[in-house]
Computed example of a mutant assay.
Amino acid sequence: MSKRMIITVGDARVGKSTVIKLLLEIFAQQGKRIKVYNQESFPVFQAYEHIATIKKFNLSNDDADAITDDLNHPELDVMIVDMPGQDIEKVIQYIESASLFEVVVKFGWNLTFLQPISHRKDCIYYLNAIIQNATNNANYVVVKNYHFAPEFREYEEKMRKKLLIIGGTEVELMALHRNHYQAMEKADKPYSQVCQDLSIILFWRSFIFQWIKKFHHSVMNNHLAIKYLGLD
Rank of each mutant, 00 (worst) to 15 (best):
G108D: 02
S17Y: 03
D188C: 08
Q39W: 04
K144F: 00
Q46D: 13
M174A: 15
S199V: 01
I166S: 11
E157I: 12
N61H: 08
L176V: 07
C123M: 02
G85Q: 03
H223L: 09
H50E: 15
R153M: 11
N38M: 10
L100I: 12
G230S: 00
Y125L: 12
K56P: 14
L76A: 03
I6C: 10
Y37M: 02
Q86P: 00
N61F: 02
F45D: 07
K90H: 04
K3W: 05
A225T: 09
G85H: 05
F42H: 14
Q46S: 14
V194N: 14
L224K: 15
I67V: 13
A52K: 03
V103D: 03
A52E: 02
N179E: 15
D188L: 10
G168P: 06
F101N: 13
Y94V: 06
A12L: 10
W211V: 00
I208E: 06
E156F: 01
D62E: 15
K189Y: 01
N128C: 04
H147R: 12
D188R: 14
K213Q: 13
K227F: 01
F113L: 02
G85C: 02
F152Q: 05
K90F: 02
Q29C: 07
L164F: 13
I88Y: 05
F152V: 09
I88A: 04
E170K: 12
H217A: 09
S199Q: 11
I54E: 02
Y140W: 06
L22M: 13
K189E: 11
S60K: 13
C195H: 02
P116H: 04
S192L: 06
Q115P: 00
V103T: 11
I67F: 06
F215V: 05
T18E: 14
A64S: 13
H223D: 14
H217T: 12
Y94R: 03
G15I: 00
E75G: 06
S97E: 15
I34W: 05
V105P: 00
A98Y: 01
E96G: 05
E89S: 11
N58T: 06
E170R: 08
V91D: 08
A28N: 11
I80R: 03
T112L: 10
R33G: 10
V194W: 10
Q210W: 02
S2L: 14
K186D: 09
N136A: 09
Q196M: 06
Q29K: 15
P190F: 07
I7W: 01
K106A: 12
Q196S: 13
N58L: 05
I117R: 09
Y191V: 04
K227T: 10
Q39M: 05
W211K: 04
E102G: 02
L22I: 03
T169M: 06
